[in-house]
Design a protein around this nucleic acid. Structure first.
Lengths: 347, 347
DNA sequence: CTGTTAGCGCATTCAA
DNA sequence: TTGAATGCGCTAACAG
């Protein structure tokens, strides 16, 4: 038996009107819950709607309606499989659904071309606003749309060459605090492993690392800083390299999610998890169950997402304030790995 | 300075035509890349489009166009923050984007009312098809839409009272294999902790547990089976209860993600992780880093998502085959916790 | 309170 | 190869 045979075609407002014996305008009034419709008329219309399986067509409605809102929001993120991005999206959904706004989301990985394609597809569908976790490093390409009335809000990475709202974590402060905590435990040789150096969050987290060193009067040792690490696999190699230097670090600061995971694999494999202090930026799932627990600078993706959504809607509601820059606080959660004292010879 | 002042209003096809000195229809032809337009005319139109910042309006276009495809897909899932759901969604996105189809996704938790609301919002926007991980237990409410031409594909949980396509994991087989593996190690008292018993996956996983016991000639002990556990917190209590029975289990089968996590917390807290064998259904992040590693029945969310998307598009391409039931294989990944031998007195 | 007419932005006839 | 009319489903503006 076929599941989908002979679509009977969808009823229009005109057919509903005919069936209910009223004008199309009256049906429209009922649908939009306008006042000043007699209860009997409304009832007749509702019956007709049910009988015909009529469903309001939002697109057609928006075509004529003033303001032209599609009640949809575009969200462009790195990868929905990443827990951080997923939580951001979830929070955006919450705020949006309250306004009956739906979310069109797409992952773009680290592919600028795909970012462009996805943004285009979303704009073709006339999303009312856009929340963007960009992978591109120059955003003037979006200026035209932005100023034409589709507000762009940037998440996690600030807009470059574009005057738009931004929400992100306190990357500098969080990193500084983590590294300072390691220093307080007596560590002097602290390894840094971070993401691609063109990414603003990577830059900021390295900056926090440096500030903490400077505040403690420590010199940065270039051989303890590894950048451009963007996968667990590369992180494993980076740890390997760090431990091979003349004076290996007694502590590690891994400045990104996947980097942290890669480092955990190596340290665990070598039985070093209890001997090298380790703090990661961004939480890892089940970090508290490991032995020792994984200390981490925890972000608040839900608050970031909520804030981003609120900023978009504020713009849609007519706000003309200067571009906002909202920094969401992070929190160093100590679970054991970050509180280890230095061990003279780790390897 | 304001970020969003004076939206100049968006150029229409008519304005483009005027500026290029051609007819509306010619612009339309250029936009849709129809053959038989002279290169010069096309060039003039393209210039006008760029100058005016014109952007094709897909909604208006679809209104008149035959077939009326919005090139959008609705995806309704439990919770986008759940890694399983996120991976499914990601795979759907991949398939969809190749067809320039965008995905409207929404989380509904376990709230039937919200499921209804979200589905309504998506249908109002005339999504071409729908991928649904339902929380409702009766789906005849979707029959009308489904037969009207909006194909519904069910994921993770099969349709009830509705003749629609379904993609899910081999819950029975996976559970049977996991429990059989425990039995092979010598376990005779194996605890089961599972999700709400109205959920089909929970029913199937319990069935697999029972089949394994039966195949080994073991009687099911009711005091070792705990159902309706749907959060880590409840899972912790369930483990607590199981360990308090007269003859506590020497092995545990936790039949869901969050249940597994709750169990891990308790076992770790009590120092029992190395003494009670444990296999979970559905993988947990970083499970291989724990000590011992968490053995798990791993699903293939990406394949589930890909298959679901392909089924939707097959229907949209006109397939009238009988409703499909695609079972995706699972894999028991042994990492240590499931290979522990029975310990006489665990507590 | 209810109905009529025009038109949103575009694609489809049909005609030149 | 190009263009003028007509209408998609709905709402705005204006009647009654």
């Amino acid at each position: 038996m076929s599941t989908l045979r002979g679509a009977p075609g969808r009823a229009t407002i005109r057919e509903v009107a005919a069936r209910a014996g009223v004008s199309v305008k009256s049906v429209s009034r009922v649908i939009n819950a306008e006042p000043s419709v007699s209860p009997e008329l409304a009832a007749r219309v509702h019956v007709a709607i049910t009988e015909l399986g009529y469903r309001h067509n939002l697109a057609a409605s928006n075509l004529r309606r003033r303001g032209q809102r599609t009640l949809s929001l575009g969200v462009v993120i790195q990868d929905i499989s990443n827990p951080f991005a997923a939580s951001v999206l979830r929070a955006v959904e919450e705020v949006a659904l309250r306004r009956r706004v739906v979310v069109l989301a797409s992952s773009i990985d680290a592919d600028p071309h795909r970012e462009r394609q996805v943004v285009d597809e979303l704009l073709r569908r006339r999303v009312d606003g856009m929340i963007l976790m960009p992978t591109t490093v120059d955003h003037r390409q979006y200026a035209d749309e932005h100023h034409r009335g589709v507000p762009f809000v940037f998440v996690d990475r600030p807009p470059v060459a574009l005057d738009a709202d931004y929400v992100g974590s306190d990357n500098i402060g969080g990193s500084r605090e983590a590294v300072a905590a390691l220093i307080r435990r007596g560590h002097r040789r602290i390894g840094y492993i971070g993401d691609t150096r063109s990414i603003s969050t990577a830059i900021e987290r390295l900056e926090g690392y440096r500030q903490a060193l400077a505040a403690a009067g420590l010199d940065e040792r270039p051989d303890l800083v590894v950048q451009d690490v963007n996968s667990p696999g590369r992180a494993e190699r980076a740890v390997h390299d760090l431990l091979a230097v003349a004076e290996p670090p007694t502590a590690l600061f891994t400045a990104q999610n996947l980097v942290t995971i890669g480092a955990l694999r190596v340290l665990r494999g070598w039985g070093l998890r209890g001997r090298i202090a380790h703090i990661g930026f961004d939480d890892v799932e089940l970090g508290e169950l490991l032995e020792p627990g994984v200390s981490a600078v925890c972000q608040s993706p839900a608050e970031i997402g909520r804030t981003a959504a609120e900023l978009v809607f504020a713009r849609l509601d007519g706000s003309t304030e200067p571009a906002q820059r909202r920094i969401v606080q992070v929190q160093l959660v100590e679970r054991g790995s970050g509180e280890l004292a230095p061990v003279r010879s780790v390897v």
